[in-house]
């Protein structure tokens, strides 16, 4: 696997996410730059991810706290979601799916044709992701092996968004298949 730079994907991630929210989720969001984050530093309540496979393999994931997952679900369904339940996971999966699908079409020229997986949503408290459990940790570790094998050397391109004081990150990691 060869590491590929993908700074120039930020604009596409922002426009894809804005497109999804402006059409399907009646919620104002604002993007706020981007940064790289080692995956062993990620700690979150909800992870909603879609993997890509093709010439490149990658993952697009939404990382967010429980409050914003409930807020997104409430906005999508027009209900008052109070707890993380099947509807919340389903809604967050669809959001990741739509952002990934929109992004895929925008980055086709750079990364080639890619097949999208069905979304996977994991919810808990203080979730982290990494490839190996090498000691005791207060956090719950999750190994993600779909598309890209995540390990502590991988950095995610994080694009933060905020809405009325709450925030979430859209994460992206991709590698060229040798």
């Amino acid at each position: 696997m060869t590491t590929t730079t993908y700074d120039d994907v930020v604009e596409d991630i922002v426009s894809s996410t804005n497109e999804v929210f402006s059409t399907m989720i009646p919620m104002e969001i604002t993007s706020d730059g981007s940064f790289y984050q080692k995956e062993d530093m990620i700690s979150t309540d909800v992870i909603s991810l879609v993997s890509f496979t093709g010439e490149h393999s990658g993952i697009l994931a939404i990382f967010c706290c429980k409050e914003i997952a409930l807020k997104i679900t409430s906005s999508m369904l027009g209900i008052e979601a109070a707890e993380i339940d099947h509807d919340t996971k389903d809604a967050m999966g669809e959001v990741a799916n739509m952002i990934a699908g929109t992004l895929k079409n925008k980055i086709f020229e750079k990364f080639g044709a890619m097949h999208l997986s069905v979304p996977i949503v994991i919810a808990g408290e203080s979730l982290s992701i990494r490839s190996a459990t090498d000691g005791s940790n207060d956090q719950q570790d999750i190994k993600i092996t779909s598309g890209v094998t995540c390990n502590s050397q991988s950095s995610w391109l994080m694009t933060p968004f905020s809405s009325n004081g709450s925030s979430f990150n859209v994460g992206f990691v991709v590698k060229k298949n040798d």
Partner: peptide, 12 residues
């Protein structure tokens, strides 16, 4: 659609 949420949204 495998998403019940999406089925609800389309209906609405």
């Amino acid at each position: 659609d495998d998403s019940a949420v999406m089925r609800k949204i389309i209906q609405r």
